[in-house]
């Protein structure tokens, strides 16, 4: 609360700049200043690259990436209603703002992904797909590309039996020029049981195939969130909070210290809905 009160005092000055605004608009304007309005602003506040009014600090400016500035901004970048531990947050901020080894976000180089919850029309029904988007260097600049997809109709379509009772193609089939395939595929809903143990269906390819065949039509985006996987040994999730008050906009909704590579791999599998 003390942090918010301090911020409101600072914002009060800027709100007075507004001309011809009604009183309720002035109150709203203070909240809008406080809101983290763009992902870009999240990056800048996280890194300490802008002033209270949102004007950019550049390399060489006295306050650019100032650790004091960052210690002021970073605690305000959490969703206050998420209920994450205050101690964990403090550890996170302390590590990021360490004077010798500070950690900053890098738009182009960091391991981060956008999870886009989108609606499609598929076989006469509205269905949700999660598109995982990544930035990729291309030509003279960058582009967002679809890295993977989670799509429920595909997930339930593949059910691989890996038990000892599973159907198989016997090991002397080669002597028969694999005539055993005829029986294997006859009336078989699950031909995936004839694939190696390591087989994983490539949902993105299937998704694009259905789209190219005209079976899958984009309707709309419902919401977006972001996952930052390894920022100085931390994972965090970024989500948009559209609500009254000062703790709004793009905020950290989930925070976790990564202990080792195995935990990071498990976390990625979870985020990509591969568990």
């Amino acid at each position: 609360m003390r942090r918010l009160a301090g911020l409101v005092m600072v914002l009060g000055f800027y709100a007075s700049v507004g001309q011809g605004l009604t009183d309720d608009m002035k109150a709203t304007e203070e909240q809008l200043y406080a809101s983290t309005k763009q992902i870009n602003q999240f990056f800048r506040r996280f890194n300490g690259e802008e002033d209270d009014r949102g004007d950019r600090y550049y390399e060489g400016d006295k306050k650019y990436r100032d650790s004091g500035l960052r210690r002021k901004y970073l605690p305000m970048l959490f969703d206050e209603e998420a209920g994450s531990s205050e101690d964990v947050r403090k550890d996170f901020v302390k590590q990021l703002t360490d004077r010798k080894t500070p950690v900053f976000l890098d738009f182009h180089r960091d391991d981060w992904v956008a999870e886009v919850n989108a609606q499609f029309r598929f076989k006469g029904q509205d269905v949700t797909a999660l598109l995982y988007m990544k930035l990729q260097a291309q030509g003279q600049g960058y582009e967002w590309v679809i890295d993977d997809v989670s799509f429920e109709p595909f997930k339930t379509f593949f059910e691989k039996d890996t038990s000892d009772q599973k159907q198989f193609i016997h090991p002397m089939s080669h002597e028969l020029e694999f005539m055993t395939l005829r029986k294997a595929f006859a009336n078989n809903e699950y031909p995936e049981q004839y694939t190696p143990r390591s087989y994983e269906p490539d949902y993105l390819t299937l998704f694009l195939y259905e789209m190219k065949r005209g079976n899958l039509k984009f309707k709309t985006v419902k919401n977006v969130r972001f996952h930052f996987f390894d920022i100085g040994g931390w994972y965090f999730e970024l989500a948009n909070f559209n609500r009254p008050g000062y703790n709004t906009g793009w905020l950290i909704s989930n925070l976790m210290k990564i202990q080792n590579d195995q935990q990071l791999a498990l976390l990625k599998a979870y985020v990509y809905d591969k568990n």
Binding site: G18, L21, M25, L32, K37, Q38, N40, F107, Q140, G141
Partner: peptide, 16 residues
């Protein structure tokens, strides 16, 4: 009416 707020992002270069 318009609030006296504008937030301007960085410029990113696209492939072209």
């Amino acid at each position: 009416k318009w609030y006296d707020i504008h937030y301007i992002s960085d410029l990113e270069r696209q492939p072209d």
